[in-house]
Design a protein around this nucleic acid. Sequence first.
DNA 1: ATATTTGCAAACTGTTTGCATGTGT
DNA 2: ACACATGCAAACAGTTTGCAAATAT
Lengths: 158, 158
Amino acid sequence: MGPDPTTAPREPRADEDVAERLRSAGLSPTQRRRRVLEAVEHRQRPVSAHELYVELAGQGHRVGMSTVYRALSALAEAGLLHVFAGDGETRYRLCAAGRHYHLVCRRCGTVREYPADDDGAWLDRIAADADFQPDPRKAEVQGVCGTCLRAGQNGTAG
Amino acid sequence: MGPDPTTAPREPRADEDVAERLRSAGLSPTQRRRRVLEAVEHRQRPVSAHELYVELAGQGHRVGMSTVYRALSALAEAGLLHVFAGDGETRYRLCAAGRHYHLVCRRCGTVREYPADDDGAWLDRIAADADFQPDPRKAEVQGVCGTCLRAGQNGTAG
DNA sequence: ATATTTGCAAACTGTTTGCATGTGT
DNA sequence: ACACATGCAAACAGTTTGCAAATAT
């Protein structure tokens, strides 16, 4: 917040990190794009364009809806964000580097990235077994996360 | 149509099968619903409401779009159809009985159901390992099927 | 100075809904 | 007869797009 780098001359603040990331993804690190990436980054559950718009507006930032949409699309296309298509709204979430697939909780919506190699190369087995070449980044398992499971043991049984 | 069962008393035609299925799903087997279920049933790749509408219209059947939407939703809710959320359009596909997950081909759109037990209970491993209770019916792996793979070996390398 | 990016508002697409009519039992 | 399913058209939600003003390099 204090634009006085006297005492912090070299420290790569998250801010700069984000800009860097945008740059190496081939996107000019404009203020809006940085804001969007930052906002997405801190979330465990995928976020929709509208949610983001509201959040940014709530922080006093003037951003147009179309800008949010455009930023999100660009970031996704650049491989920085994962896309989740669920009911009607498209949602986005930060995308990690390694081979992994997604564990998405049906109750709280949180998405966890599960290393695709921790499970004995399950994906590779599919490749051989089913004559199918899986994309580890596009594998998704829905279910209920432990937290929600314990929280709602007595909920809607079925 | 012909309220005269004199000559066709006992034969379980596919038609009746479909009706039966609807009934046991708690849905009255109306003509439109039967048509929709039949039309979905014969497809390997999930179909959208609009595609179905066009197909039915092409067969000379008068069906309203909203009816198609309503039928599809009802069938999905009854567990007879799987829902695929991909880009913008919701798509539906017949849902098999056993534990399985989906192998969806990014190129041709075909979805194959892969028995969830053929792979050493991968899903169960997740449950224990990641503190997450997976829903076998809601697991989806995207990739490229063998057919498309072989057909387009020289295509867009990447 | 020049190429991008942004915001706005209007256009679009896929989907849902109210209501009168038609259909199944 | 009666409840439910259907069709139509209008309403909606999410998303995209054209274009002039703002911004970045």
